[in-house]
Design a protein around this nucleic acid. Structure first.
Lengths: 114, 114
DNA sequence: GTCATGTGCAACCAAAGGTTGCAGGAGGCG
DNA sequence: CGCCTCCTGCAACCTTTGGTTGCACATGAC
């Protein structure tokens, strides 16, 4: 079946730093490039670029609040992303199991026939 | 909880070309850089590099066969990778649901108190 | 008004995915 | 054996992307 994957969405969550950022935004509800960079091993500018990627992918939404730009996770879109991860994982699992079953069937047949 | 993710494993399956290669190897049982490149939009050399990455990540194993180098998926390791994908997806889902439940609880409380 | 803090833009660097080009090794066949 | 074919491996090079530093600008606090 080869699960159809939204490549933009996947590449957005493919980066480890971006995943950590999503984690932080989830646990803290919201954050800015500056606050996030304080909890990450990269500079504010790097975080800002990542926020741009996540924004274009629709995974986060920005809300200007005074002089800062507050980001928060878009629930629906992250849910979609989570579903895709699960789907790909599930398909691989299914295919591996199918192969195992076939292998066992052949094994059984062999011992039957001698 | 922030699911611990094996970053090497994840980055190996993070590339779309490598995922397609794994799909091909699964459906066809095995393949070489040359046979895979014929079914992909990239050159043999690019495929060879990706096979190197997948090999170092342990996701595939090479078996020299005459003049060709036949690769096949390492079942256990791909199963591990699939589990990680599912785990991250599941955790995001759980956290989103937790947030939703809390939001609903607050909503309920508000209408209770007037 | 001044100072501190947060944002935005630009130049630059290194790693990774991809390409072309070429040299080398293993099989098939006259 | 000699030749041809096909597959592999290495090297140089380009482009994108994650990351950095440096600087200009805006906004809130005092």
């Amino acid at each position: 079946m080869t699960t159809a994957v939204d490549d933009d969405l996947w590449s957005a969550i493919g980066d480890p730093t971006r995943r950590r950022m999503l984690d932080l935004l989830l646990t803290e509800g919201a954050g800015t490039a500056t606050t996030l960079s304080r909890q990450l091993p990269v500079t504010r500018q790097a975080v800002a670029k990542h926020l741009g990627v996540l924004d274009r992918a629709g995974l986060v939404r920005a809300t200007p609040a005074g002089r800062e730009k507050r980001y928060q996770v878009d629930d629906a879109e992250l849910e979609r992303a989570a579903a895709q991860l699960a789907a790909v994982g599930a398909e691989w699992d299914a295919r591996l199991n199918r192969i195992k079953r076939i292998a066992e069937a052949i094994q059984t047949k062999r011992s039957d026939n001698g």
